[in-house]
Design a protein around this nucleic acid. Sequence first.
DNA 1: GTCTATAAATAGATAGAC
DNA 2: GTCTATCTATTTATAGAC
Lengths: 203, 203
Amino acid sequence: MTPPTSGSRPYHHGNLRTALVEASFALIAEHGLAEFSVAKAARAVGVSTASPYRHFADRDHLLAAVAAQAALELADRMRADADAAGTDPRERLAATAGTYVRYVAERGVGLDVIFSAPLTRLEQPELAGAGRRLTDLLFELAEAAGPPGSAAALTLLERHLVTAHGYVTLLREGFFSNRRPKDTVDSVAARAIDASRDLVVRG
Amino acid sequence: MTPPTSGSRPYHHGNLRTALVEASFALIAEHGLAEFSVAKAARAVGVSTASPYRHFADRDHLLAAVAAQAALELADRMRADADAAGTDPRERLAATAGTYVRYVAERGVGLDVIFSAPLTRLEQPELAGAGRRLTDLLFELAEAAGPPGSAAALTLLERHLVTAHGYVTLLREGFFSNRRPKDTVDSVAARAIDASRDLVVRG
DNA sequence: GTCTATAAATAGATAGAC
DNA sequence: GTCTATCTATTTATAGAC
């Protein structure tokens, strides 16, 4: 566990790559994607601003690694919350809206980053695979919850995601806290679950 | 209409302030808020990068003027679309979801900017008033459309805004065009209207 | 693999001439 | 009210030493 070299030197890091991804999450969660930079991530882990470029071709490739990990974490948490919600398929899908609100509040990275055009264009298999894992899970839950017919399931899925992401975005931008100062992440998450549960797809 | 001074000189602008706001809209619509800068807006209208600071204290004050105008434009278009939708209160409210999708696609500025924490903190009466005009209109439409009881109307309003903003955000980030390349602004706007129309608020 | 040093952009903002 | 010039800060990314 001790770094390979002597005492007070900065950092040698068995795994700088992992540390940079984690530092990036922290920066994005705290100050938003706009204020994220490779340089800040490097400083946060105590290495020079040049070091990240040994592990990531450029800024977007670092972000793609963050996005891929976010998609996997999100899928894991959604599956866990769906299972904790019981057996009612409608309730299982709705639960993931709460997962999503809480996840983005904690980690700062959501669908807008995971599926953003600039990162998708990199065609990183890791990110593409993680994104698929997330959408596959959600589609599975929506199909079980929806009215028969896969077109209706897709519409339900779209509205579910739009609802969850709408709550996330407005929460992130301060829309809720401006007008309802007592709003907490958990209360917004609960409202997102309620909104998703009440979704209907009419003919 | 001719500028007060002679021929080929750059720009004298009877109203640089207005021109900067309009240029900012264009920049944000084209490349997103992240790539907006005071310097770019100045270059777009053909003045030096110092000139904007005669009209706006800083970057955020320019953005606040943009946000205030957006709120007014949005409220105007929503009222027009609601009126065009007829007399059914539910249909009138739903129509504004389409207005919102189309407006942000065209102008780039939405609720996340209009009600963003950094701009709200400036306490600019112009922006605060424009924001109120927008929320007052929406509340009026939601109250007419909702089930009796103002708590239910507020929930309906929240879900309506969340739906509209969710569609806007995912559209902006390319989420829809990645998976459904044939999606257009109008088709997404139509789906947002449908989703809003189908909203219900259960006990 | 990490560091130092550096290059090249770009931005926000100010001072002072006109 | 606009311009020129400038300062300061920051970022992305590379070159080359260790």
